[in-house]
Structure formats: C-alpha cells, structure tokens
Design a protein around this nucleic acid. Sequence first.
RNA 1: GUGGGUGUAGCUCAGCUGGUAGAGCACUGGGUUGUGGCCUCAGAUGCCGCGGGUUCGAGCCCCGUCACUCACCCCA
Length: 418
Amino acid sequence: MSIATIKGFKDILPHETPIWQWIEKNARDIFRVFGFKEIRTPLLEWTELFTRGIGQETDIVSKEMYTLADSRGRNQTLRPEATASVVRAYIEHRLYLLNPVQKLFSIGPMFRHERPQKGRFRQFHQINAELFGDPGPRSDAELINMAMHIFYRVGLTDVTLNINSLGCTSCRSEFKNRLRGFLADRRDMLCGECQRRAELNPLRVFDCKIDSCRSAMTGAPVMLDHICDACKNHFEAVKRHLDDLGIKYVVNTLLVRGLDYYSRTTFEIQTDRLGAQSAVAGGGRYDGLISELDGPPHSGMGFAIGFERLVALLEEEARPLADNPDLFIIALGDEAFRKGFIWADTLRKEGISIEMEYEAKGLKAQMKRADKLNAKRVLIAGDDELAKGSVVLRNMETKAQEEISITDLIQNLVKNIK
RNA sequence: GUGGGUGUAGCUCAGCUGGUAGAGCACUGGGUUGUGGCCUCAGAUGCCGCGGGUUCGAGCCCCGUCACUCACCCCA
C-alpha cells in the first residue's frame, strides 16, 4: 500500500454515511424545534483566538493544536473546538445588536493532535450548540434538555447526565485557594503531575485516577459546598428546572472539565460503552468568555456532542439503513439496451432511483445483481418484448410480474413506483 | 510523549517442532434455451507490513523499522 490516511484521520465510507446523515437530520430537527439557527465558521482561525478563549494552560492549547504559520509568519490554527469561533462570529458581526439572545448550532470537524485511541481521533466531528445572552438558570436547563432530546431522538437512552457547578470567577478563586491549602499538607502523597496541578489548577487534581492521589483527596473540600449564594441559587434553580422537565441527572462534584472558560453549570453526558472514553457530550456555562474576547458582557452557554462517539454507540445496536434502488432495468439485446439507457435517464429526472448494468450481460447475471442491490422492482426489456411493444415489470418481493406497453411506459412506471 | 497488543487474499482469521500459503464470507462464471435469494461446481486474488541477519531453505527464529490498535494524560 502506498499512501494512506494520516494517523488519527478517518475516511467515512459509503456504508457509514447513511447513519451520519440520519443522525444529522435528527439533530437538525431538534435544533429547529428549539429555535436554534445554523452557523458555519471557518476551520482555520488566528491562533490567538484559542489561546485567549480556551486558556493557555489547558491541554488543548498547550499541546494539542494544529498550528501553522501563514506567509507572513502569523500563526493560524485548525479549530480544536467550536465555541471560540462561534463567539468570535457573534462579536465580529455584532449579532447581539440584532438580538442579544442568539441560539446557534454548528456541525463539523475539529482537530486535536492527540494520540488516537478508541473514540478519539485527530480529526473528529462535533454537533455544537451555543446559547448567548441569557444568564438565567432556565437557559441552562433548556440547553441540557435539548442535548438530551437529541440522544432520545436517535434512540440512546442508556446515557447518564452528570452536572456540577464550578461557581463564578470570584467564588472559584476563593475555593482554589482553599484547595491549595488542603493539598499543601498532602503534597508528598500526590503524583508529580498533580504536584504541578496543585499550584496551577488545583481543580484538576480531582480528575486524577492514580490511587494515591485519590486517597489524598478524601476529605478534600467540595466545590459545591463553597460556592457563593448567587451561584448556589443558580444551581438549585437549574436542578429544579431539569426536574420539571423530567430529566434525570447525577450531581457529580468531581466534574471539572478541561477548558478554562467554564463557570457555574457544567455537564457531561456519559456512557460506559466506549472504552476509556466516558463522555459522549459535554458543555457548560461560560459567562466570562464573550467579554474576554472583547465582546459585550453577555453570558453564554454551550455543548458539544461527539459525532464519532454517537455513531459508535448506535452502531453497536446495528441500525440498518437501507438505501435500495426503486427499479433495476434489465436489458437484453442491443436495441433494448439503448432504450433502457434512455428510460433510466427519464425516470431519474422523475426522481426515481434506477440501477442498470453498464455492459450487456445475461438475464441471470442481471437478476443476481438486482437482487444484490436489493432493488424493489425489475424491468425486463428484451428485444422479444420490444418487438411486441411491451416490457415486463417484476416485483422482487412478491415475484408478481406484469406486462406493460411501452407506449406509455414512463407514466405507468412513475405512477406505479411513486 | 510513555507503555501493552497486533500486522498472512477485499473482510474475519488458520498456518503444527523453520521445507517456499490455506479456510469461511465476498467476488467472477457455470449447473435448461430469457428470471434473483438456497444448493452445487469451477475460477481469480497474496512482494505473509517493510529492511536486514541466521540457515541449504524463513510466514514461522534474531535485530531494526513502520503502521494499526488499546491504554496512560486529557477530552467529544
């Protein structure tokens, strides 16, 4: 084999695209009923958008971005996530002047230079939603609800919604200090990585799976117990609204999430069927992000669904999505072949899907092909029939055959098939 | 970046203690002259990941290398 795909990049093959289209159609349907409009942003952005938006210290920015220099040496980056780009567009085009509340969705590829493994690729796709301009807990609940709608719509019910609150910038920094104090006493119990985290971003220590770190964390202060009253009230209201909507959730105080911009509500939709990857979707509120990127002081909230992960979960359930031709035209003889080729074209213009051989073959071979392609009907046109001015239409399922005159063949077929 | 596993026909894999490659599925063509699925017969298909070494001889042993994959980290 000579040239193959780049590591972590995947072809989505013809037998896979139907489920991708099906998922996308369902997601669009949900977005429509929730009033979310599509936005499509470029795949390439100035690197600074992500370093400022996502945060210099995050894994994404510090080691996973595909960055290249333009001809003048300025850095541009293939987007590792969608939110920063959508926020940029909201600010750049002053969408908030039209209506401060903007509900946007976007579907497309993201790029992160990580080591690939099950459910994780260097180019992967996300279904993304952002809700700008509303700070209240009702929008949190609605956005989470909408994500769950998409899962339910495609038939996935064995996923778990985890929610947490990270507090606002002020109560979070207060909590971080408290946590640093706690960790300082146990420094020697922590792994090297966590010792570094303890200073830079102590919240991450909660994520560590190493036993010694976990036991070091027993008795650690819990974020939720230390957020300010405003944040606490907000979180309680979010939960209440979710309850009203009948959405089941687990409060997971360890749910931290790796992007710096989150504030207050964060959530993750998890599964245990994806190897080491537990998240199929994740998101949260990011009230400081828009102003951080030089926009108005509006709040925001968003989520991303991992397209490949969703596909993988649905494929385990073997969902057949047949895409079979309406009619297979079998031609026997030169004249019949010539006519059949023209009929095929005419019928396709009527929106009927037609399959036909490109080269003359025996009846049996063509029947086999028609069967293999799962054609619903077969039109048998031999020079014999043509001489009589008729052709045979066979229903492959019932095996019923009828003769049709070729004078009004097309209208007959259109009526018969549509 | 670090570890484990695997690389043989389009796919899933077998290949005994080294003797120059096999199965099932898929594919192509037959089994009545113009009727599919089942059955049956026949056929095509491989630089056995790549490079080097040991050997009379390597898919099998040794060294290296690459790729894929899973996991760590983190996330969708």
